[in-house]
Design a protein around this nucleic acid. Structure first.
Lengths: 266, 266
DNA sequence: CGCGGAGTTGAACGCATTCAAGTCTTGTGG
DNA sequence: CCACAAGACTTGAATGCGTTCAACTCCGCG
């Protein structure tokens, strides 16, 4: 199982010194099997987890047992920062496939607050990017129709993984089932299937056997009305993507409208 | 225009000393007219804003000019923390009615990082609660049908404002138009109108002239499948609400299901 | 061999959107 | 004071997108 080093995940954010501050060499990594939840820590303080490999989904359940995925962690992400600072973990988490997590002791992190405040602040930055992603999910689910929603979601996954050096812009290993997509996009698995079929027939992208292959990235971004600025990728990656998509940047809207109009994006 | 003091908004979080750390006495408050956006600061660093009074909406636009509200700030909230830490403001903001904002100088806050790290950490906590609210919005929009979505949203507003001491649990001044509700819930204004009509006819609540009046709070919470734990209200408020709703706490689901089933909540 | 999960497709239903035409209130200017 | 415009709210009818139900294939695995 390949492991994502901190300096690859956050090339411009954390220093090597900080890596040593955050991780304790002898803390054992935790392996999760597919569909396994986070291990409950026996002691009071749950650790923060660094996703060394694999994907994890964060869920919120309704009374009928349907669940909504409210976030997906990819290699290089941190999770549990909310539990660290607020003292209560507020979401169900489950591995979407085999995953490898490295614990960051909560007690140790707390000492950083006074001892290395700038490192502490960087973790805040990380959680703020998560927050920006959450708000973008609201936009995706609230405003976009089925096809655009899937396209937008796939574009986000592609770029987040690209930013971690896990793929180029032509495709990526994306070990999510269509049901996972459905739970993340607020749709039924059946409809996800149909939308993926349309994207495939339009020659835009294919998602088979956990492999996403992009044929026409510009089209994917266009019909998904995708903007990647919320991901805070940094100048280099922003430039690379913009070069790849010259002229496709979804320009600002002309005039505000009131309707929902999910059926527009031809 | 009434003003929300910091110690009323966050009774257990910030101390009086910290209030003096955060605010500078001679920083002038900024008044916003209804539908006015945030003032662009002339100098490089945008301040963080404390909402002393009024409501503000945060928006994300699509290419067609429709917009999705991705968050609402109420009196006592902070906004712009993301811009402070990430160096870029990532969302459009607009006052939903007359509003009063107090600036917190970015430069001044930055000095707190090293000088008063625990205060800095409390601002992180504040932003993490915002983040939890964002994730809950994903759930609301992704899983709930029209009536439940409106009920759930109104319940959130009621409890957030109740937590700030702005109302009891029987109603509240909620100066939002039906179009505001629509943009926040990912629905059309027309459908919001119909759902509000249903809630009114069922004797659950009414929203007229910017005044929300709750007749049957338990029903509102039940059909909205609302859980308030994500708001991190604290023990006292949690207890008060639980007393008010004895037995209605939406118990955990029995078994997971795959469909979307937005039409269930009888 | 049979089972279960993932993916696929068809058909019917229904919730939410869209379009349209109203009412009511508010603010503005003649 | 009234006329008028603009915005918020309301209601009806038609359309359609997405759900639901169902059946089936494919594949990995015990």
């Amino acid at each position: 199982m390949a492991e994502m080093p901190l300096e690859q995940a956050w090339p411009t954010l954390f220093t090597r010194t900080e890596q040593r501050l955050l991780f304790r060499a002898n803390d054992p990594a935790t392996s999760l099997r597919s569909r396994q939840g986070l291990p409950c820590s026996s002691d009071a303080a749950e650790p923060v987890w660094y996703v060394a490999d694999g994907f994890l989904g964060h869920y919120q359940l309704d009374r009928a047992g349907r669940r909504q995925c409210v976030g997906i962690s990819v290699p290089g992400d941190f999770l549990g920062l909310s539990a660290l600072m607020l003292g209560r973990s507020d979401r169900e988490t489950e591995a979407l496939g085999p995953a490898l997590l490295r614990p960051l002791s909560a007690a140790r992190l707390r000492t950083l607050e006074g001892a290395a405040p700038e490192t502490f602040g960087k973790l805040w930055q990380v959680s703020l990017i998560d927050s920006a992603i959450s708000r973008y999910w609201i936009y995706r689910i609230g405003r976009l129709g089925g096809r655009a929603r899937i396209a937008n979601f796939l574009a986000e996954m592609l770029m987040r993984l690209h930013a971690r050096g896990l793929c180029g812009l032509d495709g990526v290993d994306l070990p999510l089932t269509q049901t996972d997509l459905a739970e993340a996009c607020g749709m039924t698995p059946v409809h996800v299937n149909r939308m993926l079929g349309e994207l495939r027939q339009d020659g835009i992208c294919t998602l088979v056997h956990g492999t996403l292959r992009i044929q026409r990235l510009a089209e994917l971004v266009r019909i998904g009305q995708f903007r990647w600025d919320y991901l805070h990728l940094g100048r280099d990656l922003d430039g690379e993507i913009r070069d790849r998509l010259r002229g496709v940047t979804a320009g600002g809207p002309a005039v505000l409208r009131t309707g929902l109009g999910r059926g527009i994006p031809p």
